[in-house]
Simulated assay, not measured.
Amino acid sequence: MTSVLHCQALASPSWAQTITGSGITSAAVTAFALIDQAIGTLIATGHMDAGQGWAVLQQVSQHTNIKLRHVAELVITWA
């Protein structure tokens, strides 16, 4: 299952440059994994789809001024 995050990230030109230029860093892979796991947690506990889970993480991150990666960690810890 491809997450919304991966679909949006792969569509951006900067992401394509990162893949072809310097490669994906281990920090980026870890962040993507955390975010995917948090979206999965929201799907399981919140009865929503992947797009809604992504939107929830994004909104919480923007409204609390906390990095998306950290919001994902908090969701995983909470669950």
Rank of each mutant, 00 (worst) to 15 (best):
A72R: 09
I39A: 03
S14W: 14
A11R: 07
I43Y: 02
S14P: 00
S12T: 02
Q17R: 04
H47C: 13
A79H: 07
A38D: 14
L5W: 08
F32C: 11
L57Q: 06
V71I: 15
A11I: 04
Q59Y: 05
V71R: 06
Q58D: 10
I43T: 02
L34N: 15
T64S: 13
S26A: 15
V60K: 03
A55H: 05
R69T: 10
T77C: 06
S14Y: 10
V29G: 07
L10I: 05
I24G: 00
S14N: 10
S61P: 01
G51M: 09
I35K: 13
T77A: 14
A9N: 05
T20P: 00
W78M: 12
S22E: 12
A27F: 14
H47E: 08
I39W: 02
A9S: 01
Q52N: 04
A79C: 10
R69S: 14
H47V: 06
T2L: 01
I35Q: 13
S26P: 05
G40Y: 01
E73P: 02
A38K: 14
T25S: 15
T25Q: 14
T41D: 06
A31P: 06
T20K: 02
I66Y: 10
I39E: 00
Q62C: 08
Q8N: 08
W54L: 04
A16C: 08
L10T: 07
A16M: 06
A44W: 00
G46W: 12
G23M: 01
S12I: 01
I43F: 02
L68Q: 13
W54N: 05
I43W: 01
G23P: 03
L34E: 15
W15V: 01
I24A: 03
W54I: 05
C7R: 00
K67T: 07
W15S: 03
H63D: 14
Q59H: 02
G23R: 01
T25C: 07
I39T: 04
V71G: 05
A27R: 15
A50C: 04
T77Y: 08
G23E: 02
V29A: 10
A27C: 14
T25M: 09
T41G: 09
I39N: 00
V60Q: 05
I35G: 04
A27N: 12
G51A: 07
L74T: 09
A38M: 11
Q52R: 12
L74I: 15
I24D: 03
T41M: 02
G51D: 05
S26K: 15
H63I: 02
Q62G: 00
L42T: 11
Q52V: 11
S14L: 11
P13E: 15
G40R: 04
A16Y: 04
A27S: 14
G40D: 08
T2A: 02
T77H: 11
R69N: 14
L68I: 09
G51Q: 11
F32S: 09
V60C: 03
S3A: 03
T64E: 05
V75L: 12
L74R: 14
H6D: 05
A9F: 03
C7F: 08
W78G: 03
P13Y: 11
